[in-house]
Design a binder for these strands. Structure first.
Lengths: 208, 208
DNA sequence: AAACAATACGACCGATCGTTCGCCTTTTCA
DNA sequence: TGAAAAGGCGAACGATCGGTCGTATTGTTT
């Protein structure tokens, strides 16, 4: 059970509920300002709390950053992964996964767009627990994506692709679509959709 | 003539030389800490200058960030673009361009890796002159890459690719390779090389 | 209900931030 | 060479940062 799942759980002790609320808002802020740009005082003001209250709940800023990473992971799982899990394994699930993912970029759940696309480049050169957590989240996502591709390959699709390589490529294109769209390139998202369609569309050719 | 080209130009007025030195170091720092993480005081200490001296040279932090973007652009042009311009237009130049680009990611000119890969995601949701400059630099690079692809297509290569789309895809893959490699994914760079090889390798098939 | 742990607060700390102000030196240009 | 401009510095500013107290309050558990 994750914090966000327990958000409205009345049995949940008060502190954990507050932590989840703060972490969720921290993820929103970090999607724009970055995890380094997070400020205990700003966060407290936004939520009508005291700075020291927020501070005691998380102990230190680093723990808040780690909580934001976990909260953003929950949002991503609920928005992109969960709908795909309703589809049966194979090409259908992979297509749903990628579609929800592109929708997630087109209509972001956070004000700064995709959290992972923002935090991986931010922390990739900053050793420490936060980078480790972001790296693990990235690895988890790529592994899941690769597994979904393998299921599709079990159905005979995408036979000429290496699963891990295709997962890397899809992730790269969607991440670039996120940054491109947000920086004002209106062609970024349609271009990314075209690339993804070409990469996955080959599957249909091989099936027919 | 850019600032970095004039770095050792004795005719250059002293201030511009100092500005170029500071901007170059600022780009180094920003490749790790981000453009927002730049600090006038830290920069001054690193270079043995006074904080106020750096401040008067650039006026405000935003101008320093803009100078860092321009300095990083110069480094990229010198490291990646210049060697490719020695090749004749067509597939040879495109291949050199991509090879130098991947080398630039594998053996970074800056301590934090590719400056553009770090700053585009950082500023894509932060309106202002800095985002505009980063967006223009990104646009310029994609346009140049697209043009190089068109020259290759004039030779009959890459016929089944849309130039702008392929440019977007190459940029996405190399950027993801940069982030992936820096965050500890040892397979990121070889995977990216494989993808690029497949994307451009098709050219040889069509030529044969 | 009593005892305990967790939460939340205001106040304050030292540090660092960007920026501004005099003042002096150096460079530039006519 | 002399006047004007620009470079460069130390000091100080208000603001904000993360973090730490002591203390009151709330929630949890026995």
């Amino acid at each position: 059970m994750t914090d966000s799942e327990r958000l409205s759980d009345k049995r949940l002790i008060k502190g954990a509920r507050a932590r989840a609320t703060i972490a969720r808002h921290a993820a929103d802020v970090a999607s724009v300002e970055g995890l380094t740009g997070l400020s205990l005082g700003k966060l407290a003001t936004d939520l009508g709390l005291s700075k020291s209250g927020v501070s005691t709940l998380f102990g230190c800023k680093e723990n808040l950053q780690l909580a934001a990473v976990e909260s953003a992971r929950d949002v991503f799982l609920g928005t992109v992964v969960a709908p795909a899990l309703n589809e049966e394994r194979g090409l259908a699930r992979l297509r749903t996964l990628v579609d929800r993912w592109l929708d997630y970029v087109a209509t972001p759940a956070m004000p700064g767009g995709c959290f992972r696309a923002a935090t991986v480049p931010e922390f990739d050169s900053r050793p420490g627990p936060v980078r480790d957590a972001i790296g693990a989240d990235r690895r988890e996502w790529l592994d899941f994506l690769e597994k979904a591709i393998r299921y599709a390959q079990d159905d005979g699709a995408l036979a000429d692709h290496d699963a891990a390589t295709l997962a890397f490529e899809l992730d790269a294109v969607v991440a670039a679509a996120n940054s491109g769209a947000r920086i004002g390139d209106e062609s970024a998202l349609p271009t990314a959709r075209r690339i993804v369609e070409r990469l996955l569309g080959e599957a249909d050719q091989h099936r027919s």
